[in-house]
Design a protein around this nucleic acid. Structure first.
Lengths: 156, 156
DNA sequence: TAGATTGTTGGTGTAGGACAAATCATTAAT
DNA sequence: ATTAATGATTTGTCCTACACCAACAATCTA
């Protein structure tokens, strides 16, 4: 059946570890992000918008895996601070095309810079190269899953 | 000043990515873990207990980075299902030594097995070797931070 | 025109978790 | 021996993030 004789047993489960680390990061990040006027979940949204470029709110809801109504609130927060811009799609004027503003991009950069100390603490046992590897793995995991989430949708 | 000409700029920030992935994992894990009678945070606690061995509740509070009173509730849940055992420390009879029971270890194993599908979905874009690398990086990040958390305490 | 879709508002409910205060058992300090 | 500090527990309050539902306006599609 299987064409490969390689080890087929799945690798270790890292869900709990990710959950654990996410908690540690979030706790520290909150205080670091507070002076910037945003919260961790805002940072996620900004990151997604930067990595994916402009998206409809439905896309965001799918990618962020949160309820549409809550996405509205999230974007309201971000738009109120000019970090994000909603404009009507010319193709389908029901849609809002959400895009990161220059202000948002700059704030995101500042936020990430400010989080250096946090990550240095949480990932103190990882070398720079290991952290980069981790980043790439995570990036790969999230990016393509975004594509996958879009595969079921129309305009990707 | 710097003895090395290597790139000194810190690696990318992966906090947001971890947060994002953690959310995706948690949402799916909840429904998978529900039939087993536990929730994601229980799984984290069980995992920590397996990886660290028996610990005092204070240690757990420090490692899980949650309030002591909430650790009590968490352990109450786990103990009610016989997944965890609290016994008095012989050295300091105020302390409770918390340990994973056989039942707990088995349930943890079953839970991880049941989460295979979840991780397969979320990490669909990572190969088995990449997932293993990811696991090891996460493990390393969490394990030693636990030691670090214990460094400030007494009996480690 | 009728029906479906995108976003928006408002309201409700729940769960996680922080925090404070009081209690009990035990240990350490004087 | 008395007092103070510590670990665990209980209770109760509060807040935040969310999911979920219903209703609505604007727009697209059949």
């Amino acid at each position: 059946m299987s064409s490969l004789p390689v080890v087929n047993q799945p690798p270790h489960r890292c869900g709990a570890l990710i959950d654990h680390l996410a908690r540690r990061l979030r706790l520290r990040s909150e205080s670091v992000l507070a002076p910037l006027g945003i919260r961790p979940r805002h940072l996620i949204a900004l990151t997604v918008l930067r990595d994916r470029g402009e998206s409809s709110q439905q896309d965001l809801a799918k990618i962020l895996e949160m309820d549409g109504t809550n996405v509205v609130g999230l974007l309201n927060d971000l738009e109120a601070e000019n970090l994000v811009e909603r404009r009507r799609s010319t193709a389908d004027r029901r849609r809002h095309v959400v895009e990161l503003t220059d202000v948002g991009a700059k704030l995101l950069a500042r936020a990430e810079f400010a989080l250096a100390a946090v990550e240095d603490e949480v990932f103190s046992t990882l070398g720079d190269d290991q952290r980069e590897t981790l980043y790439e793995l995570l990036q790969q995991a999230t990016r393509k899953t975004g594509t996958e989430a879009c595969r079921e949708a129309d305009p990707c």
